[in-house]
Amino acid sequence: KPLRTKVKTVVEVVKRYQKTDPALLLELAKIGNNINQIARALNIIKNADPQEQRKLDILKIFLVLKAIQIELEGIFPALPKISRQSQERLQKQLKDLQL
């Protein structure tokens, strides 16, 4: 019978962490918190009574959010483009809300 040999492979995992500025992490946390608050508010508005929704100027809210998105794209061009609805569809939905 031929001899059987076992080969044992040892893999060494080296963890490398970059040192991140704590002030940067704090600012990112603040941005994340603000985004969560905006999302929460929009969900409340979305689920609100249609009578209450009509009191809000939704178009202005969307324009502010679009301006934020454009500004972020200017600062960080690598961010993905977010486009979920065409402008025509958005206008139609806003008109339907105002009826």
Results as ranks from 00 to 15, higher is better:
Leu42Arg: 01
Leu42Ala: 05
Leu42Lys: 00
Leu42Ser: 08
Asn43Tyr: 11
Asn43Leu: 14
Ile44Ala: 07
Ile44Val: 08
Ile44Phe: 06
Ile44Lys: 14
Ile44Glu: 06
Ile45Glu: 03
Ile45Leu: 08
Ile45Val: 12
Lys46Gly: 02
Asn47Val: 08
Asn47Cys: 04
Ala48Lys: 05
Asp49Ile: 06
Asp49Ala: 05
Pro50His: 11
Gln51Met: 07
Glu52Thr: 05
Gln53Pro: 02
Gln53Lys: 10
Arg54Gly: 14
Arg54Asp: 09
Lys55Gln: 06
Lys55Pro: 06
Lys55Ile: 07
Lys55Asn: 08
Leu56Tyr: 11
Leu56Asp: 04
Asp57Pro: 09
Asp57Thr: 03
Ile58Met: 04
Ile58Asp: 00
Ile58Lys: 00
Leu59Ala: 10
Leu59Ser: 14
Leu59His: 02
Lys60Met: 13
Ile61Arg: 00
Ile61His: 01
Ile61Gln: 00
Ile61Pro: 00
Phe62Ile: 14
Phe62Asn: 06
Phe62Ser: 07
Phe62Leu: 12
Leu63His: 04
Leu63Lys: 09
Leu63Cys: 14
Leu63Glu: 13
Val64Cys: 15
Val64Thr: 15
Leu65Ile: 07
Lys66Val: 15
Ala67Cys: 13
Ala67Lys: 10
Ile68Ser: 13
Ile68Trp: 11
Ile68Val: 09
Ile68Asn: 04
Ile68Cys: 14
Gln69Lys: 12
Gln69Pro: 13
Gln69Thr: 07
Gln69Cys: 11
Ile70Leu: 09
Ile70Val: 13
Glu71Val: 09
Leu72Gln: 06
Leu72Pro: 06
Glu73Asp: 00
Glu73Thr: 00
Glu73Trp: 04
Gly74Thr: 13
Ile75Cys: 02
Ile75Pro: 01
Ile75Leu: 10
Phe76Ser: 11
Ala78Lys: 08
Ala78Asp: 09
Leu79Tyr: 08
Leu79Trp: 13
Pro80Asp: 00
Pro80Cys: 05
Pro80Asn: 00
Pro80Lys: 01
Lys81Asp: 04
Lys81Thr: 08
Lys81Ala: 02
Ile82Ala: 03
Ile82Asp: 03
Ser83Arg: 01
Ser83Tyr: 01
Ser83Cys: 03
Arg84Leu: 05
Arg84Ile: 15
Arg84Trp: 00
Ser86Cys: 04
Gln87Arg: 11
Gln87Ala: 10
Gln87Gly: 09
Gln87Glu: 14
Gln87Val: 15
Gln87Asp: 12
Glu88Met: 13
Glu88Gly: 02
Arg89Lys: 06
Arg89Gln: 12
Arg89Ile: 06
Arg89Cys: 08
Leu90Cys: 05
Leu90Tyr: 08
Leu90Ser: 05
Gln91Lys: 09
Gln91Pro: 00
Lys92Glu: 14
Lys92Asp: 13
Lys92Arg: 08
Lys92Tyr: 10
